[in-house]
Design a binder for these strands. Structure first.
Lengths: 107, 107
DNA sequence: TTCTTCAATAACCAACGGGTTATCGATCAA
DNA sequence: TTGATCGATAACCCGTTGGTTATTGAAGAA
């Protein structure tokens, strides 16, 4: 029974997959071909990774002719942010010098 | 060459390991025995997970007689928060670009 | 139509990772 | 000293996973 954090952590744990997501966040919508060109792995590998990302809700696809455009859905990072905040919160309730961490979360 | 996010995501991707970290965040310092009792896996498995968490800087250990106490170091979550903020930031900046573009088209 | 291109799927393989049991060193108890 | 307990390590097993090549279907191009 995988919860939201589970899926997100597992999905983002792979460097190649995380790099794809990062690229989509940085540069916006991309075709599979464009993503493959810079990924260092084969097109089927990219397609598989994109499928996993889509399953986690981190990207969406848009078909246009014979090419597929993928784009990031950073809203899906919500559960990750929640989990991290919760962990930091537990810690904060027991200790005080958390300012550095909180500052980073603030921006 | 694994960067900080890489180590953190990989470390937290396993549910058993994440549960151990969560428990240490919630309840503070615990011995290996106490953690094992509620973990659902064997003591060697728990020791291995704690080793991985320690390597990622997420926990520290304190030896006292023949037992070892572990505690969470949530400050180590920093790079995770940084990464998430950065991704959300890219999203935001592209959104701003779009807004900017639409504004310019408006005039 | 025929040929090419794009991306998804199939089939397969090797490596990794998380689990186990067995064991060992170290510490406390008798 | 002897025996029990705590936790780390070793050795091993097996399922998962990330990669590959080959192939397929769909959509332009000629």
């Amino acid at each position: 029974m995988p919860n939201a954090q589970d899926v997100l952590f597992k999905t983002l744990a792979d460097p190649t997959r995380r790099a794809l997501f990062e690229r989509l966040c940085r540069e916006g919508e991309q075709t599979v071909g464009a993503l493959t060109a810079q990924s260092g792995v084969s097109q089927p590998a990219v397609s598989k990774h994109l499928g996993v990302l889509r399953h986690a809700g981190l990207v969406r696809d848009r078909h246009e002719g014979r090419q597929t455009h993928y784009s990031a859905q950073p809203g899906a990072l919500g559960p990750l942010i929640d989990w991290t905040s919760r962990m930091a919160g537990f810690w904060q309730s027991r200790f005080d010098d958390l300012e550095d961490l909180l500052k980073r979360m603030d921006q």
